[in-house]
Simulated scan of single mutants.
Amino acid sequence: MPRLMSPPQIGTGRRDTIGLRTIVKYDPMAARPTTPVLVGKYVVARKPIADSVHTLYMIMDGRDVVRMQISYPSVADCEGAIRAAANARTETARALAKAKKSARKGWQARPMRVKEAA
């Protein structure tokens, strides 16, 4: 059974790729985007670093910055950072509650010393 082959489309370039030898000039004065992006269901704020080609990506949990990194974060990075921040918040709340409880006892928390009469 012969295969039907379509003729090559000469002269029709693809529009969604760039050539191998394409040269792009970097303009340090050009404005870079600072709008937040969604990575999965997580909000990531971005901030261009001055005098550098890099961008600082800040993983947000509400209004709090959970983690900052230079590489573009993945969904797993965001999940791990938010989970670690939540664990740290619960541990801090537990330690604070324990400190308040022991401070409330005051002098009663320490055992009294009894001096022996010799």
Rank of each mutant, 00 (worst) to 15 (best):
E116L: 05
G62E: 07
T34M: 10
D61P: 00
M60K: 03
K25F: 11
V65T: 13
A95V: 07
A31Y: 01
K115F: 12
A109G: 10
T90F: 01
Q9N: 11
G62C: 08
S74Q: 03
K25N: 13
Y57C: 00
D77V: 04
S102L: 07
L4I: 15
A103Q: 09
K101W: 03
V66H: 00
Y42I: 00
S74Y: 02
P36A: 11
V44F: 07
K98T: 09
K105Y: 08
R63E: 12
R94F: 05
V114H: 13
R89E: 05
A117N: 09
P111N: 11
A86W: 00
R94P: 00
Y72E: 06
W107R: 15
G11F: 09
L56F: 01
R67M: 01
G19F: 08
Q108C: 10
T92V: 02
V114Q: 13
V39D: 02
T17F: 15
A30C: 05
G106M: 09
I10N: 14
K101Y: 03
M112R: 14
T35R: 14
V44P: 02
V114C: 09
M29V: 03
V66D: 00
Y57R: 01
Y42D: 00
M112A: 14
A30K: 10
K47Y: 14
V66I: 02
K47I: 13
D77L: 06
I23W: 03
R14V: 08
Q108S: 15
A95H: 10
Q108K: 15
A93D: 08
R113F: 14
V24A: 12
L96K: 12
N87T: 05
V44I: 11
L4A: 14
R83V: 05
R15Q: 10
D16A: 07
P111A: 13
E116M: 04
A118V: 14
A117M: 09
I49T: 12
T55N: 04
A117F: 11
M1G: 15
A117D: 13
D77I: 04
Q69P: 02
P7I: 09
A93F: 03
W107A: 15
A50P: 04
L38A: 08
S52I: 06
I49N: 09
P33A: 13
R3M: 14
G106P: 05
V65R: 04
I70W: 06
A93R: 06
R67H: 02
G80F: 01
D77F: 05
S102Y: 04
R14T: 09
V43P: 01
P2K: 12
